[in-house]
Amino acid sequence: MKQLWVEQYRPRKIKEYVFRDEQQERQVQSWVDSKAIPHLLFSGDPGTGKTTLAKLLLHELEVDKGDVLEINASNENSVDVMREKITHFAQTMPFGDFKYVLLDEADYITQNGQAILRGLMESFASTCRFLLTCNYERRVIPAIHSRCQGFHIKSLDQTMFAVRVGEILANEKIEFDMDILDVYVKANYPDLRKCINTCQMNSQTGKLEKPQEGDLTEGNMEITYVAMFQNGDIEKARKYIV
Rank of each mutant, 00 (worst) to 15 (best):
M1F: 13
Q3C: 10
L4V: 06
W5T: 06
Q8D: 10
Y9L: 06
Y9P: 05
K15S: 15
F19Y: 10
R20I: 11
E25D: 06
Q27D: 07
Q27M: 15
V28L: 07
V28I: 15
W31T: 00
W31L: 01
V32S: 08
D33F: 09
I37G: 01
P38W: 11
H39C: 03
H39Y: 05
F42S: 00
F42C: 00
P46R: 07
P46Q: 10
G47Q: 08
K50W: 09
T51Y: 09
A54F: 07
A54H: 07
K55R: 14
E62D: 13
V63D: 09
V63I: 13
D64S: 12
K65E: 15
V68D: 04
S74T: 07
E76L: 08
N77D: 05
V81R: 10
K85A: 10
I86Y: 04
T92D: 09
M93S: 15
F95H: 14
F98E: 04
K99A: 08
K99C: 07
D104I: 02
I109F: 03
T110S: 15
T110L: 10
N112M: 09
N112A: 13
G113A: 08
G113Q: 04
A115M: 12
L117E: 04
L117D: 04
G119S: 04
L120Y: 08
M121C: 05
M121N: 04
E122H: 04
E122M: 04
E122L: 02
T127K: 08
F130H: 02
L131I: 15
L131V: 13
N135V: 02
E137M: 12
A143I: 02
A143F: 03
I144Y: 06
C148I: 01
C148M: 05
C148N: 04
G150L: 14
A162I: 00
A162N: 02
V163I: 14
G166S: 15
A170W: 02
N171H: 15
K173W: 04
D177C: 10
I180L: 05
L181F: 05
V183G: 02
V185G: 00
D191I: 02
R193Y: 11
C195K: 01
I196W: 08
C199P: 03
M201R: 14
M201H: 12
N202W: 01
S203L: 05
Q204W: 10
T205E: 13
E213T: 13
G214D: 09
D215A: 12
G219W: 11
G219R: 13
N220E: 15
N220W: 07
M221R: 15
I223M: 14
Y225V: 12
Y225H: 12
F229Q: 11
F229G: 00
Q230W: 00
G232R: 03
K236H: 11
A237Y: 06
R238P: 00
Y240Q: 09
